[in-house]
Simulated assay, not measured.
Amino acid sequence: MSYFVAVVEERNFTRGGARVDVVRSAVFAAIGRLEHEFGTLRWSAIPAISPPPRPEA
């Protein structure tokens, strides 16, 4: 799940993977498994990721 969070926050598979010290292909595969498990669409078919705004401290 940490891969998913990193990708959403970074809005990029490569930067998200770098943040959790994993190569992009491994992040993409892990998220693909999550998508299969939860029955969602492939992110590659979605044009942009828009995470919710971070709460202010």
Rank of each mutant, 00 (worst) to 15 (best):
A48L: 03
V8W: 08
P47R: 09
I49C: 15
G39W: 03
D21F: 09
V8L: 15
F38W: 01
W43L: 10
A29R: 14
L34K: 06
R54M: 03
V20Q: 06
N12W: 10
E56P: 06
I46F: 15
R19T: 07
A57L: 12
V27E: 00
A18F: 04
L41R: 15
R42K: 14
R33L: 09
I46Y: 13
E56T: 09
A6Q: 11
A18S: 10
A45D: 11
R54N: 03
L41V: 06
R15I: 05
P53D: 14
A29Y: 12
R19E: 08
A26W: 04
H36Q: 12
I49D: 13
P52I: 07
P51E: 13
P55W: 14
E35A: 14
R54G: 00
W43I: 01
P47V: 06
F13S: 05
N12V: 07
G32K: 08
Y3F: 06
P53I: 11
R24E: 08
G16R: 00
F38V: 02
R42E: 00
S44W: 04
A30V: 05
I31S: 04
V23C: 03
L41A: 13
V7H: 02
E37Y: 09
E9R: 02
E37V: 14
A26P: 03
E35F: 07
A45K: 14
R42F: 00
T14I: 02
S44Q: 09
G16V: 01
A6Y: 01
S44V: 08
V27K: 01
E37Q: 11
I31E: 01
R33P: 03
V7K: 00
P47F: 07
N12R: 05
A30G: 10
L41D: 09
A48T: 10
T14P: 00
P55Y: 13
H36C: 02
F13P: 09
I49N: 05
R24S: 06
G32R: 13
R11C: 14
I31F: 02
G16H: 06
S50P: 01
F28Y: 15
A57T: 07
M1R: 02
A26K: 02
R19D: 05
E35G: 11
H36K: 12
P52V: 13
E37D: 14
A48K: 10
V7C: 05
R33W: 03
V27T: 06
A45W: 05
I49H: 11
F38T: 10
S25A: 12
A6R: 02
F4I: 07
M1G: 06
E10M: 07
F13E: 08
E10C: 05
E37L: 15
A30M: 04
R15V: 14
I46N: 12
V7Q: 02
I49R: 08
S25Q: 05
M1F: 00
I31G: 06
V5N: 07
D21K: 15
V27H: 02
E35Y: 04
G39P: 05
R11D: 14
V20S: 08
R33Q: 15
G32M: 10
S25I: 07
R54C: 01
F13W: 14
S2I: 12
V22N: 03
E37M: 09
Y3M: 15
